[in-house]
Design a protein around this nucleic acid. Structure first.
Lengths: 338, 338
DNA sequence: CTGAAAGCGCTTACAG
DNA sequence: CTGAAAGCGCTTACAG
């Protein structure tokens, strides 16, 4: 069989059936495994499939089954750099692993420009996927609204904003952040500042909220600088913090990347970590381990998050209820920076 | 129109046609814009489309047109971290921008486990996409082989290995690396070492090859340590290099990430950059600008690479010839590290 | 320019 | 268990 010959055409179910000497219906039944078929015909069909390298045409199949066997994961293009350090790759790994169990395919879409988001909407409406996972949603993100009316199930990380109420899977941001700040207090730190994440994101909001509660509870003055989850942002925010209050002895950064930036700013300012300033991060991605000193940080079960998001959207696609919102636990991991 | 009602079904072309008082054929012609239609009917159809929020079902459409309007970009999962710093995001941006012009969608697939690669093969064979761009191919990558027989056009970055000859778009790795080494010689460096990339990749091979040619030509002893394109790898390789030859005064790292690692290793070893050791990187991604000192590096037109890869695969999908292999130019960018 | 009809490749009641 | 037939939603010659 010359696959490069111009007149060659992909084998269809009809070809398989003919070669196996059965009806198209029977061939379909063994290929999809949907109905029992006599052993003789079954093996004949299987042999034909192998001989022909037959793979069902998805267009034909999904036209009638109304299923595609693939799910979309939508990543925000803008924040690519922010989360590149471990978060997205790990989330993708989890989602892929979960989908693998039902032999389904993960398709990643980047939401960039407004035009790009429209195209994603069309893509979803066009029936390319059975469900959508939004990896990151912020304040005024138009995507949940655009996708809400498509009839295709959509879920998201953390929590959706505005009027569109999407089913979500989150992590315990508040609990993790509170644990971090409490730990800093417990080891005797009294002037604890925070480098907060963007207030437009759930993670930014919730981690800051917990810091504030813990600080106020201890009758201490909150020291906050907001940054954008990046190394560079963390560095600049920490410099501002040091200018405002040079006697800082504890620092909670709302992401590991920002904590790495903080480490650099502190080094430049001549502060030793953890002796002068104890630093705690959030995420527990790779750079936490390789930082110098290695970061004490709040571990987030990112792979689990990916898995649970997929399970949720699969459940929805199967017509089941979303059930109560799921919040995954976080945990403080002690290393050298605090 | 209650989109959440269980009995609601997506509008079909038939619904549009009926609402507009035309035949299904006419409705199709205005929606796809394939044939001229009288102004009266045209606007009636358009109105119906808007009223119904009609979006063509891709399964039906591609079943007959044999086109999906989307292309796959396959990224290697393993190397995610390696290229996360700018390369892949930029490549994706270029590919997306190029596709945008024909209103087509980029779909990103991660090639992970062997099972995952099989699933990608099935996905492609199933007719989900009109073409495939392999973002990174190495030595014994089975993917080109798996995809070669699908009948779907496949192109790749740099160059394919083995017996499968895929059409490619590359950058002038050798020219860029040679320029870097020549520059180091021109500024008077005499003991020039290199941190090479993995010898399993075209970029690794070609950049090292150019270094060796330039070194041998100058009757100098080559000093090579191989690493994996990461910061950590660059750090370790540089430490080895310094152990082997402490008098190194020039260093060409085959990626910016490795150059950043080299900077750290040099700092720890008490060497000043560029005074004691002049360092040149390759890629010109974000971290080159933010490194301290800012990296002198070989600029690679990554976004163009993404665009040209898409153009190539689109051309193939349209039945045209691939044409001669395209090699994009590189250029040395002078900053502070050399 | 327009419509009736065929057909893309598949699955699924419906009879048997 | 099996096959003939209908139909998923769309496009495209074919007549007009």
């Amino acid at each position: 069989m010359d696959l490069t010959a111009p007149e060659w055409h992909r084998p269809t179910l009809e070809d398989v059936a003919q070669r196996a000497g059965v009806s198209r219906a029977t061939a379909s039944r063994v290929v999809s495994g949907s109905h029992p078929v006599s052993e003789r015909r079954r093996s004949a069909v299987l042999r034909a499939v192998a001989d022909l390298q037959y793979v069902p045409n998805q267009a034909g199949r999904s036209l009638v089954s109304r299923r595609t066997g693939s799910y979309a994961l939508v990543l925000p293009e803008g924040m690519g750099q922010v989360f590149s350090e471990g978060f997205f790759p790990t989330l993708i790994r989890g989602a892929t692993a979960e989908l693998e169990e039902s032999d389904e395919q993960l398709v990643i879409l980047l939401a960039g420009s407004a035009a790009g988001r429209r195209r994603i909407e069309q893509f979803v409406r066009g029936g390319h996927v059975d469900g959508v996972v939004l990896a990151s949603v912020h304040d005024r993100d138009p995507l949940p609204g655009l996708l809400a009316g498509t009839g295709v199930p959509v879920v998201c990380c953390e929590r959706a904003y505005g009027d569109v109420q999407l089913p979500c899977v989150g992590v315990d941001n508040a609990g993790g952040a509170a644990a971090a700040v409490r730990y800093l207090k417990r080891i005797g730190r009294t002037r604890i500042a925070t480098v907060a994440g963007p207030s437009s994101t759930p993670a930014g909001q919730d981690r800051l909220g917990a810091y504030l509660r813990e600080t106020v509870r201890g009758h201490r003055r909150p020291l906050v600088a907001e940054a954008d989850f990046t190394v560079e942002g963390g560095r600049a925010a920490t410099a501002r913090l040091l200018a405002e209050e040079p006697r800082i002895d504890g620092l909670f950064a709302a992401s590991d990347l920002m904590a790495v930036g903080a480490l650099e700013a502190l080094r430049r300012a001549g502060r030793r970590v953890p002796e002068d300033v104890a630093v705690v991060g959030f995420d527990d991605v790779d750079c936490a381990r390789t930082a110098e000193p290695a970061l004490t940080t709040v571990h987030q079960p990112i792979e689990q998050l990916g898995r649970q998001l997929v399970r949720l959207v699969q459940r929805l696609a199967a017509g089941e209820e979303a059930g109560p919102a799921l919040v995954l636990p976080t945990a403080l991991v002690l290393r050298d920076s605090a």
